[in-house]
Design a protein around this nucleic acid. Structure first.
Length: 151
DNA sequence: GCCAACGTTGGC
DNA sequence: GCCAACGTTGGC
């Protein structure tokens, strides 16, 4: 079982939306490194930290569980979608998504500032590759975060 | 394959 | 809204 961190803008789709929907496709990822993780490495049962970016309090807002491994993101085929990609075809899809289920919403977001100042989290990929929206998390990082959050 | 120009992300 | 960092595109 592996651990991940998925970034999202809560104004578009945050932990609050996932809590209401219960299960949702994690779609719209349009970066090759992140795509490769979704396509090849994210598996059913993996745990996902949901990170809120570009908002008032940026940081980790909750946890989700993967319920369906990588499959072609349907939005790439839809000309009406913001995520439409004219170069993608059904036979050669370019972008992938996974399905996630809501697991937990923290009573307070664990702020980026805390992550930055916690020694045990100083090697997080989140901090090293600031623009990567799907990144691996180690078991010890995940456990450290569970100790820091407010339930 | 290099690299300049350009576009996007995301913290502040 | 600014801007640094980084990813992508396209000419050569």
């Amino acid at each position: 079982m592996n651990y991940w961190l998925f970034k999202t803008e809560p104004d578009v789709f945050g932990i609050e939306h996932l809590r209401k929907d219960k299960v949702a496709p994690w779609d719209g990822v349009r970066n090759y490194t992140a795509r490769n993780f979704l396509r090849d490495d994210v598996k059913v049962g993996d745990e996902v930290l949901i990170y809120h970016s570009s908002c008032k309090i940026t940081g980790i807002a909750g946890i989700a569980t993967v319920t369906k491994a990588g499959y072609p993101d349907p939005a790439q085929f839809n000309p009406e979608s913001d995520y439409y990609d004219p170069k993608a075809t059904q036979d050669t899809p370019r972008w992938f998504c996974v399905d996630v289920a809501f697991k937990e919403q923290f009573s307070a977001v664990l702020p980026l500032k805390t992550i930055k100042t916690t020694e045990a989290l100083s090697e997080m990929v989140l901090l090293k590759q600031s623009r990567l929206s799907v990144s691996p998390v180690t078991k010890s990082e995940f456990q450290t975060i569970l100790k820091l959050i407010t339930r």
